[in-house]
Structure formats: structure tokens, C-alpha cells
Design a protein around this nucleic acid. Structure first.
Lengths: 203, 203
DNA sequence: CAAGATACCGAAGAGCCGTTCGAAATTAGA
DNA sequence: TCTAATTTCGAACGGCTCTTCGGTATCTTG
């Protein structure tokens, strides 16, 4: 992930630097989610972080570096967790439940990151510097599709159209951050269970 | 909808003016969908429309006027169609099918408009001047929810959680423009049928 | 405590932004 | 054809953008 302009060489300071950088990224995620990336100015960022312009640029290479960092914070841990889940030997239906539960919990926890990811989707899909983010997204979707394919193959799941079911599931989960509230009526686990039921019972 | 700075008073010219304005709006929708609203400059708009800056401003009040016009072009006909569908006496399940089919066809046809609407969602939800767009969105969602409620009441539909089913449906359909291609493998009607099945069979 | 690395500041700069406006070109209708 | 309405042009403007940079304060470590 190549952390930026001048991370301290002294190991004792490295941890603090990383933590502060993460604070900056999370603050940016919140602002970008609320106002949009392009519509959020550096000066709004300095207001929200308490840093001056120069101080801010101590932690980032540029404004678009922030956007990539936000997507990394979102996708890397999710992808890692997904790989753990499909690594064990549970049956496909069970793996799907675990995947969707972890996924919903993750997007709820990183609601702002996810809203930014959604808003900037077109840029992510079309511009060159987003290659890694794009391939992470694709890798996650492939994990999902593979689980559905294994379930279809062993007869534990049936789909009229497996690809449509996958896309529907992506739609449901990706849309979730638009309406969830922490301490809302439904827990992430309940939401995830509902989604799984819709995908699996449709046949 | 109060069409902008100086629509011609002569009736013969009014039609041409309106058509040209719509061209401008549709071009803007395409560019905004591809690059994002804030990231698209007026000069990109003039390049794409063939108008110079001054000519462009003959048809719009300002850049944000374009955004509102895009949402109006998207939501007004959809809402009107939805009201027609629920006005007749078909049973709730049939009304739902018709609604979702019309809705999916509409977002596929107005794919760019819908992508812009999705990307600018946060602004739409939070800023004052978007009140009308917001209330149109809410009105449409209420129509959907009412159909589900009637179906639940007469026993023709069952939901573990009706609100979650509604939100899942919104997610599926709103996400559709991200992946559909015209002349893709599935027709809008097939997509809509798949979505309905997932919502209705989940119980 | 000394000294060097680190963290931060904030004014300055170059560039692009959306918008305006007076004038020119085009068109409709008498 | 003449005229007034309409359409289009494109240079100019003020403002805001992101980023840089020289300098200062703070902190770690020997």
C-alpha cells in the first residue's frame, strides 16, 4: 500500500504516523460520503481534521490518494475475511450465510467507506489508476459466484438464473449503507439472513 | 418545472427550444454518469453538446439546474406510470409484477439518468433545493410499500420482514444500471420477473 | 541536554472553474 | 424583404481549487 510521502523511519514513530493517517482517511471517508469526493474541498478536510493544509499533506500524497486509501481500507479486510470463510469445509449454503453476514456487517461498520465506493463507482471502473481496487472488487464477487456455483452443482441451491441472483445480492448489500442505522431495528445478522433467504428460496 | 432562462414566447419555436434543452440534459446525463457531476466541467459539456458556453447557458440556469432536470426526467414519468398501475383493480401480486417490470425497463432505458441519481444520492437527501426530487422518490417507494402491504393483508404475499423486502427490492433495481447492457442476455422483463420471484418466494 | 528527525503551519501560486455579457449570426413571420 | 425575436458565440472575470514550500514548533533518542 506504499504509505505516502514521508513515513518516519524510526520504528517508534511509525505506529503513531499510521494511526494519524488512518484518522485522516476515516475523516475523509465521512466527508466524502456526505458531500461527494469532488465536492469536498481540501479546506473542508483541514477543518474536519484540525490539520492545516501543509500538515494534511504530511499524510497523503494528494486528494486522490485519499480515495484509493478509503477503498483499500474497505476492501482489503473484507476480501481477507471472505477467503477465510471459503477456505474451510462447510457446505456451500453455510458458507454463503457466513459470507453475507460478514459482508453486511462490514459494510454497515464501514458505512461511509462504502458510500464513497458506491458514489465513485464510475471512476473506479473506468480509470487506469484504479486497477487494484477494481480487481479486489472482482475477486470478492468471484468468491461469491463460486459459492453459488458449488451450491448449484451439489443440488443444495437452485437458481432460475444464477448470475441474476448474484447481481441481485450485490444490489441488496451494496444498497444497505443507504438506509441502515447503527442500533437500527434490524441487526446486520438479521439483514444478512433475510437477504440469503431471498436468494436461496427463489429457486 | 419552470424551464429556465428565456424560453421563446413564439409557440412555433417553443417545441424546438424544448427539444434542444432535452438534448442538452441527456448529454449532461451521459457525461455526469461517466465522470461524476462535480468532476464534469462546463467546458466538457460545451464540447459534447457542440454549443459554446454562452449558447449552453441559453438552455440552463446553471450547472445544478441540469442535475435537477435529469432527476425530473427520470422520476416524473416513472411516478406517473406507477400511479396508473396501482389505479386499476388488479390483485396486489399482479400490480407488483407490473410495477417492477415498468420500473426495471425505465431504469434500463434511462440508465445514465439513474446512475447520476445514484451517485448524487447524498446531496439529494441532505440539501434543501432537492426537496421535490426527494418527495418524488419517497412517493414512488410508498406506492411500492403499499402494494406489498395490501398483498400481506390479503394473504397473497408473506414476508418475514416487509420493510426489509422492500429495501432489498430497491437495492436490486437501483443497482441494475451498474451492470445491464442493452441487448444483454436478459430482457428487462426477465430481470424484473427474477426480482419479483426473490421478493415473493422468500416468505 | 543537544541535535536531528518529525510534525505542523499558513501564505503564496498557478490553474481551472462556472458564469456573464455585448455583439454577431440566424431565423420566423409580416 | 425587412425587422424583431431568438440563438449562438467567445473573451473576460472573480473566485476557489489543489498543492508547494520555507520556516517553526515539537518530540525522540543518544
Amino acid at each position: 500500500m506504499m504509505p505516502v510521502p514521508s513515513p518516519p523511519t524510526r520504528p517508534a514513530l511509525r505506529a503513531r504516523y499510521d494511526a494519524r493517517r488512518r484518522e485522516v482517511i476515516d475523516t475523509a471517508a465521512r466527508l466524502f460520503a456526505e458531500r461527494g469526493y469532488a465536492a469536498t474541498s481540501i479546506s473542508e478536510l483541514t477543518d474536519a481534521t484540525g490539520l492545516a493544509a501543509g500538515g494534511l499533506y504530511h499524510y497523503i500524497e494528494g486528494k486522490d490518494d485519499l480515495l484509493i486509501a478509503i477503498c483499500d481500507e474497505l476492501l482489503e479486510p473484507l476480501l481477507e475475511r471472505a477467503r477465510e470463510i471459503v477456505a474451510d469445509e462447510a457446505p456451500p449454503v453455510e458458507q454463503l450465510r457466513r459470507l453475507v453476514e460478514a459482508w453486511v456487517a462490514h459494510v454497515v461498520e464501514h458505512r461511509h467507506h462504502m458510500l464513497v465506493f458506491t458514489q465513485e463507482r464510475q471512476a473506479i471502473e473506468h480509470e487506469r489508476r484504479w486497477r487494484r481496487v477494481r480487481s479486489q472488487r472482482k475477486a470478492f464477487e468471484k468468491i461469491l459466484d463460486d459459492v453459488l456455483a458449488r451450491g448449484e452443482a451439489d443440488g443444495s441451491m437452485t437458481f432460475t438464473d444464477r448470475r441474476l441472483s448474484l447481481l441481485a445480492l450485490l444490489g441488496m448489500v451494496n444498497y444497505t449503507p443507504q438506509w441502515v442505522r447503527s442500533n437500527g431495528r434490524l441487526t446486520p445478522a438479521e439483514i444478512a439472513e433475510g437477504y440469503c433467504t431471498m436468494v436461496l428460496k427463489a429457486g
